[in-house]
Amino acid sequence: MVAVQLNNLSKKYDKGKIVAVDSISFSVDKGELFGLIGPDGAGKTSIFRMLTTLLLPDGGSAVVDGYDAVKDYKAIRGRVGYMPGKFSLYQDLTVEENLNFFATVFGTTIRENYELVKDIYVQIEPFKTRRAGKLSGGMKQKLALCCALIHKPSVLFLDEPTTGVDAVSRKEFWEMLKRLKQQGITILVSTPYMDEATICDRIALIQSGKILSIDTPDAIVRSYEGSLFAIKSEGMYKLLNDLRSYENTLSCFAFGEYHHIAFRDKMKNYSEELLKYLENKGHKEVEMMPVIPTIEDCFIKLLKN
């Protein structure tokens, strides 16, 4: 069963000068956790807004839970859950008042769907009389998620729920999404953090309104052509510069503790030659090994193509 279907969906701003979404097509199955991965300005928010009927597409069409995003907008509103990127709740209302309000607006009560949000709500329940403005970033996200879930939506749209949230809260948030998925809710989530991609069933890598690649995270990693090496030495900045000036280097960039390097000729093994080159340049304690590319490596490679 398809929960969300996009056919050549397009969106332009500024009288057509800026193409935010460039004829994008993909579909999301029921119960899937689907990630839109891309940096700021890639078009993620525009896609979400078109799917939640907040924006009219300039071209193409979209179907959400069986309804047309333009014609049947009333039917879609009410059956989808949406957490906008800049969503910040009512700061002057307490946790409980916020949740109550959104429950009523969506024509339900907290009690009716408590089971669904229970897992998340118990974590913020001790603070239910606290005003939302006084909550930490992570707490706010949890409350916002509760508010988006309270009417038991069939499809949940989360626009950059983890932006500006610290690593611990981010991890907790994704744990919650995994549990929600088990309850059969289709979840579309966007994020600029590449490391979060692996938790999704399928992802679309997106940049400048275009999809670079769309598949399961594993398949995207497997489709990476050629081999990738991690390398480090004592002087990492000098190493980066020296690696970049090495004649056989295709690309080289910092990646955490190591630098990741790919070579021009995908088949050839340059390890020995490179180590010698680095030794001549005066590098000490050079460590080099082949690594499995991450989503981020794939994204960088796709961007460079």
């Binding site: 009333k74 509103r77 949406y82 969503f87 009512y90 700061q91 607006v105 969506f106």
Partner: peptide, 13 residues
């Protein structure tokens, strides 16, 4: 500004 308008629009309200 708060972004709550988006939610309200998406709601059946």
């Amino acid at each position: 500004e708060l972004g709550t308008m988006e939610i309200l629009l998406v709601s059946p309200f």
